[in-house]
Amino acid sequence: MATPLGDKIRKLRRDRKLSMEALAAAAEMSKSYLWELENNDDANPTMDKVARLAKVLDVTPEFLAHDEQADTPQDAFDKAFFRNYKGLKPETKQQLLEILNTLKKTQK
């Protein structure tokens, strides 16, 4: 039985028209290990492996690692961004706000 992680990997791989061999090679892992991730409910990859898969699949590691199926890659990216934002110093948050305001003006 597959896990939410396995289901996400399989769907993203197929959406990107990647074979199991191609994704495994790009993520620097064996095809058999990738098969285990996609198909076994007891697969427990390291965050390094999740990060390598996420990079190749063009999503965040948080999106892959998060158990909820409802998240989209963009939702996971936004959540990760805000988690990082919360940890910033107030002066850095102010700088980001100024950058955001500048970017908003250029999109009008």
Rank of each mutant, 00 (worst) to 15 (best):
M1R: 12
A2I: 15
A2T: 09
T3L: 10
T3E: 06
P4M: 04
P4E: 04
G6P: 06
K8E: 10
I9D: 00
R10V: 04
L12S: 00
D15Y: 12
D15S: 15
D15T: 09
K17H: 14
L18P: 02
L18K: 07
S19M: 08
S19F: 07
S19T: 15
M20K: 11
E21H: 10
A22L: 07
L23S: 02
L23R: 00
A24Q: 01
A26L: 12
E28T: 06
E28N: 12
M29S: 02
S30I: 01
K31E: 08
K31L: 04
S32D: 13
Y33F: 11
Y33Q: 05
Y33P: 01
E36M: 12
L37E: 02
L37Q: 05
L37W: 03
E38D: 03
E38C: 03
E38P: 05
N39A: 07
N39Y: 09
N39G: 04
N40E: 13
D41C: 08
D42N: 15
D42T: 15
A43P: 02
A43V: 04
N44Q: 14
P45L: 03
P45C: 09
T46P: 11
D48E: 11
K49S: 10
V50G: 02
A51D: 12
R52S: 09
R52P: 05
A54Q: 00
A54C: 03
K55I: 01
V56N: 00
D58L: 08
V59M: 02
P61F: 04
P61V: 02
P61Q: 06
E62I: 03
F63C: 02
L64C: 06
L64N: 01
A65C: 03
A65N: 08
H66S: 15
H66P: 05
D67V: 08
E68H: 10
Q69V: 15
A70C: 10
T72D: 07
T72Q: 02
Q74D: 15
Q74G: 01
D75I: 09
K79H: 10
A80H: 04
R83H: 09
N84G: 13
Y85D: 10
Y85K: 08
Y85N: 08
K86D: 15
G87F: 09
L88Y: 14
L88D: 11
K89V: 05
K89C: 05
P90S: 09
E91D: 13
E91S: 14
T92K: 15
K93I: 04
Q94T: 13
Q94C: 01
Q95E: 15
L97A: 14
E98P: 01
E98C: 06
E98Y: 07
I99S: 13
I99H: 04
L100S: 14
T102I: 13
L103Y: 10
K104V: 11
K105I: 12
Q107W: 13
Q107K: 14
Q107V: 15
